[in-house]
């Protein structure tokens, strides 16, 4: 009993400790961020690794999510005789929720884990320390470009996910099932608002991008410098990114979409 309480206490204190360190790390990262824009090739290289290389999984997943939404949406809507509203359902669910969230989860597992592994391995092989010795700030040289690469990539990936999903819903609804093409697009356009739906969805994906990138670089930087420590850090990146995305999604949704 006593040991259990002690463990819970230690875990709590450790959690708060890590949170504080993470906040300080985030501030240091922001302070060093100027360099990652002055030396743009560093950031562009990271956009390539986290954005361009995630493109395939994002586009294919988006297409399949759209196809499923088309089938499921049609199945439900035709019961109420309103299968013309399929476009609205596909577009709104993708733009508001599925686009940012699913793209964020995929991004965390595809790009976030890779960033954690890379930084963790650099720490394990003492490359970060070596940089420090050469008076190169590892946060400015290694961490910040990876962070900003992720932050820039994420909203673009989410937009592509949504666009691809809408295309998938169109394929199933209009091409395969035979919902009227004009009704599909005009109903969608009538009820999707640019500011309310698209801008809010993009803000969501931007926030998820910041959260996932921060968790990924932090877990890498903070990992135990052993093989096991790196693997545990990668697991933690994926798990806490997923939790952060879903929790933030609830908070953002309750701010943005209240059906006023």
């Amino acid at each position: 009993m006593n040991a259990l309480l002690r463990r819970i206490g230690a875990m709590t204190v450790d959690g708060v400790w890590r949170l504080g360190f993470m906040a300080r790390f985030f501030l240091a990262l922001l302070r060093c961020s100027g360099q990652s824009f002055r030396r743009l090739p560093l950031t562009i290289r990271e956009i390539y690794f986290s954005g361009v290389l995630s493109l395939l999984i994002i586009l294919v997943s988006g297409l399949f999510v759209g196809l499923v939404l088309g089938l499921q949406g049609y199945d439900i809507l035709q019961r109420f005789g309103s299968s013309d509203a399929l476009g609205i359902m596909v577009a709104l669910s993708l733009l508001r929720e599925l686009g940012p969230v699913v793209a964020g989860l995929l991004f965390a597992s595809r790009a976030g884990s890779a960033v954690t592994a890379e930084i963790g391995l650099m720490k394990t092989t003492e490359q970060l320390q070596a940089m420090d010795m050469m008076a190169v700030n590892p946060i400015a040289r290694v961490v910040a470009p990876r962070f900003w690469g992720g932050v820039i990539s994420m909203p673009l990936l989410a937009a592509m996910f949504s666009a691809m999903g809408i295309f998938g819903g169109w394929l199933i609804g209009v091409v395969a099932i035979g919902v009227d093409d004009g009704a599909f697009w005009s109903q969608m356009r009538a009820s999707v608002d640019f500011r309310y739906d698209i801008v809010n969805g993009t803000i969501k994906s931007f926030v998820f991008g910041v959260a996932v990138s921060l968790i990924a670089v932090f877990e890498g930087y903070d990992c135990q410098p052993t093989a096991e420590g790196v693997s545990r850090a990668i697991t933690r990146t994926v798990v806490s990114s997923a939790l952060a995305i879903l929790a933030l999604d609830f908070v953002l949704t309750s701010f943005m979409f209240r059906g006023l």
Binding site: I44, V52, A159, M160, I166, R189, D193, F194, I198
Partner: peptide
Amino acid sequence: TLDLWVGLFVALGFAALVFLAVKVGSYT
């Protein structure tokens, strides 16, 4: 060549945003 891919990626991303804004959404 890396720049080319990143440029293509960013262009695609913005194309998707423009598609969403023009074809899917409407301005009130």
